[in-house]
Design a protein around this nucleic acid. Structure first.
Lengths: 207, 207
DNA sequence: CTGTGTGAAGGCCTTCACAGCC
DNA sequence: GGCTGTGAAGGCCTTCACACAG
């Protein structure tokens, strides 16, 4: 299965949830496709990698497909998440409601700023970063989000790995070096703006 | 040229800047490649699409390559940016220093919360969203970042397009429909976590 | 007739392997 | 020896086109 399929499944899931909220019961591959500028064949192939979810002549039942995609992504279960770095970005993400509704529960945050250690932000307790290993291990936290400055990110990542984390989302603008068996996703906002600048400067529609 | 090349150029740029800060003068394609888990041939091909920047036997001079990549991306010039939606995410992004050093200058923000309209956040003035068209047009603002709730994002995008914006970064978790000639990049944090969950649940190293 | 699932074809992207250069 | 730039090969991903189902 192509690697990009999973990211498209996430997009399908998101729009399916919007469709259900709008009262739609079914959707066809071509309707889904036009939302993103994909082809209908691509949508069907993406879904067919994982099973037979469609109904010929009807399309896909939204709620049914939502359940299937969540099962595929593994977000039908709950994931425990920690956030390391409670600066501007960390705080914004802690306050973002979208994670918990999709199966991600932030259970602990870490920082070294003593003025916030011991407090709670949106119900999430903030611990001193020196207790990272202890708490991640004790609570069996599965995923970590790194929102510290770039020059501290690798060290934090190493601590998370040592504590047995299964995957990391890295918001620091630096490449991390991790063991093969730990999942890694990088999010760099400057990179995204640069993408946009290039596509605008070269008038190449990225779609 | 493959579409993904541009996103890799951004990554090269980022690490080159780290290398320069660490005092490195040159770097080879294989050294750059191992930072990301790419092949050396890929790095060379990516760069060779745009010119002959390397020096056989030496590698690439970091500062030289930085200048070239910035020129390619279009970030050797300054871009004016606006942010629509000054909630948690918007505020965090306004306070993020990384944009301005890479050529992106946030010159105005918009919200409809009257308690912040008229104030400044990190030196960026916050206007009522009703003045969006007027101000974007008057100041010739080039790029827009959308950080409003999903159900308001399309409407905001339409206003930005009407005001003549050249490109949009959409942080709202919804697919936007824009005219072909307007650049669009989507950033969905939940999607990123879902990627990670899948790769962990299926123990497939995404690298 | 609408719409899915899917082999086959086509195209795009990456990797290989080496000529050329320092 | 070290390293880049690049045609050729290979592989991966998307699109096509159609059999089949409701």
């Amino acid at each position: 299965m192509p690697a990009v399929v999973v990211s498209r499944l996430s997009l399908y899931l998101r729009e399916l949830q919007h469709l259900v909220r709008a009262g739609r019961a079914t959707v066809s591959s071509s309707q889904l496709a036009t939302l993103f500028g994909f082809t209908d064949a691509q949508v069907r192939k993406d879904l067919a990698y994982f099973g037979h979810f469609g109904h010929p002549g009807i399309g896909y039942r939204c709620s049914e497909l939502i359940a299937e995609i969540r099962r595929i992504l593994g977000t039908d279960r709950q994931w425990t998440v920690t956030m390391v770095g409670v600066g501007n970005m960390g705080r914004a993400l802690l306050r973002y409601r979208g994670f918990s509704t999709q199966g991600f529960c932030i259970v602990a945050a870490f920082d070294r700023d003593q003025s916030i250690v011991g407090s709670q932000i949106e119900g999430v307790p903030v611990f001193d970063v020196s207790r990272l290993g202890e708490i991640v291990r004790a609570q069996g936290i599965q995923l970590g989000m790194i929102t510290v400055p770039a020059n501290e990110a690798q060290q934090v990542a190493d601590q998370l790995v040592a504590a047995g984390i299964a995957g990391i989302v890295n918001f620091a603008p630096v490449a991390l070096s991790l063991p093969e068996e730990v999942g890694l996703v990088g999010v760099d906002l400057t990179t995204e703006l640069e993408q946009l600048a290039f596509s605008v400067a070269n008038r190449c529609s990225s779609r």
